[in-house]
Amino acid sequence: MTENGGLDLASEIDQNIGRNMRAQREQLGISQSELARQLTDIGIAGMHQTTIARIESGSRSLRAAEAIAVARVLNVSIDQLAQSKELVRMRWWVTILMERVARFHESARQLVQERVLVASQMDIRFPLDADRIFIREQLAKAGVDMAAYEAVEGALNRSDPLEILRNVYAAEAAQTSPTAREALTHSPSRTEDATRLEVRLHDADL
């Protein structure tokens, strides 16, 4: 402990290691006793269930060789083992955002491909005139149900990726409290940047 009551660097690192060690051990489904056994098997002496418990509570420091062995058994780096709560949180933000980006990219790609396929088939079967209108009489002659035709046209319109984004952002904005919206208009923020889709689309001429 420091003079002002906070943790000194060594104690903070011990706490970080203990917390991350426990989290990774539990994620792998390894008990404290099993971890102690695996460490003993690779030549780390003095490891018991109670030793692991003390390390995870932050009351017992890891020696260099022990830290390397723990990281190896738990399949993490020393850096990951010692990272702070804030760093863990920020790395999680990066991970979750990039995972969502990958899913969104794949979903958007599939949606665009399907829209192009459907639109091209509609153009072949029901070509538009100069005013981009397909005459109803032509539908009747082709024996096409008007309700089905309009359902496909409606689906093409509603599946526009940019329109979907607008709707999502509008829904998010509607859930933002008036106080938060007022605050966003008076100071720069990442939240404002993340919610101003219309401005972004306009600036990009989309």
Rank of each mutant, 00 (worst) to 15 (best):
G143P: 00
G143D: 04
G143M: 01
D145S: 01
M146R: 07
M146N: 04
A148M: 03
E150M: 13
E150I: 01
E150H: 10
A151V: 02
A151W: 01
V152D: 00
V152H: 05
G154K: 03
G154R: 01
A155I: 03
A155Q: 06
A155D: 05
L156S: 04
L156W: 06
R158N: 07
D160T: 07
D160Q: 08
L162W: 08
L162A: 10
L162Y: 10
I164R: 02
L165G: 01
V168Y: 08
V168R: 06
Y169N: 08
Y169G: 02
A170N: 11
A170R: 12
A171I: 08
A173C: 13
A174V: 05
Q175G: 07
Q175F: 05
T176M: 14
S177V: 04
S177C: 10
P178G: 07
T179Y: 06
T179W: 08
A180L: 12
A180P: 02
A180H: 06
R181L: 14
E182C: 05
L184M: 15
T185S: 12
T185L: 07
H186N: 15
S187L: 14
S187D: 10
S189C: 06
R190P: 00
T191Q: 14
T191I: 14
D193W: 05
A194T: 09
T195D: 04
T195K: 11
L197P: 04
L197T: 06
L197V: 06
E198Q: 13
V199Y: 13
R200L: 09
L201E: 05
L201Q: 07
D203S: 11
A204P: 01
